[in-house]
């Protein structure tokens, strides 16, 4: 706010002391990310050194006890679940924000928005539990076994929907009023205004929402662990059980030793890489380059 020129500070020794104290504390806060990366790398290094990166993709299977470390089935699992849920949640979330802003009468819009805010705070283990006792038996009745990629996609969709809905809501709220008045003056009907004026104006907010929900979908562990069946295989249909990278860590960390443990830290590194890429993308969008 007010610049901290050293001339204003030098008069008061307490100010200088305070500043150094705050700098120390902020350094701790800022260094946590580095610390996380360093620890992941240090723990992953043994297996990276004598197994190599390539074998995480070329080994015949994931059998860490026998020295096979193929992560690709889990990578596909993470990817399928993420793509499926983002594809469903994005239109639903954006439509629900549109509903709040342009379709719902105020008496409905307010409680509806409150509902979405409540949902954003529900923990993943609750969604997972509900998926396990309600959704999985339902899917099992249609096509056994029940725990499946489909169950994972549905639960993830429900979980990330509040994220995109709230971000889209904020994005739509930022559309300048005169755009809407201009559209009204031209006699554009409601949906034509939304499609032709609101969406292009809110584009960067919507994209940021998509990136945030993608991050949540990649990182989600408990819910997906509870409904996906956790068989290590690349799923060939929606009804196949499968395992994601995150679930793999949660399941095997308890008893993993030596190279096996290190291999789990490698998958942690992979997850961190994905998240870093997403943060980079979000940054790129917020700088406005998306308006090309």
């Amino acid at each position: 706010m007010i610049s901290s020129g050293s001339n204003t500070l030098s008069r008061w020794p307490t100010d200088r002391l305070l500043l150094w104290l705050l700098r120390g504390v902020a350094t701790i806060a800022g260094a946590i990310v580095l610390l996380i990366v360093v620890f992941l790398v240090v723990e992953a290094l043994p297996v990276l050194r004598h197994v190599g990166v390539a074998r995480f993709f070329t080994d015949p299977s994931w059998h860490p006890a026998e020295g096979f470390y193929n992560l690709t089935p889990m990578l596909w699992g993470t990817l399928f679940a993420m793509v499926g849920s983002v594809l469903i949640a994005t239109p639903l979330g954006i439509l629900s924000a549109v509903f709040c802003h342009y379709y719902a009468p105020p008496a409905i819009a307010r409680p509806y928005r409150r509902l979405i805010e409540l949902l954003a705070g529900i923990p993943s283990v609750v969604y997972g539990f509900w998926g396990l006792v309600v959704l999985v038996p339902l899917i099992g009745a249609i096509r056994p076994p029940g725990p499946s990629l489909l169950a994972g996609i549905v639960i993830l969709t429900i979980m990330i929907l509040p994220t995109i809905a709230l971000m889209a809501d904020a994005g739509l709220a930022n559309v300048p009023q005169q755009y809407l008045r201009g559209a009204a003056a031209l006699g554009l009907p409601r949906w034509a205004t939304i499609r032709g004026v609101v969406f292009p104006a809110a584009k960067s907010g919507l994209f940021t929402g998509v990136i945030l929900e993608t991050g949540r979908a990649i990182g989600e562990t408990m819910a997906i662990l509870m409904v996906c069946g956790n068989v290590v295989q690349t799923p060939h249909s929606l009804f196949d059980p499968m395992r994601t990278l995150t679930a793999n860590i949660a399941l095997e960390m308890a008893y993993a030793l030596g190279d096996h443990r290190a291999a789990l830290f490698v998958s942690g590194l992979v997850l961190m890489g994905m998240i870093a890429a997403l943060v980079g993308a979000a940054d790129w969008i917020s700088r406005g380059r998306i308006y090309g």
Partner: peptide, 22 residues
């Protein structure tokens, strides 16, 4: 600091688990 906090807020919880354990 801000950038590193942005990344921190995106780190999956299971990775925090790995880090905390290590």
């Amino acid at each position: 600091t801000r950038r590193s906090l942005d990344v921190l807020s995106g780190v999956p919880s299971i990775v925090f688990g790995l880090f905390g354990n290590a």
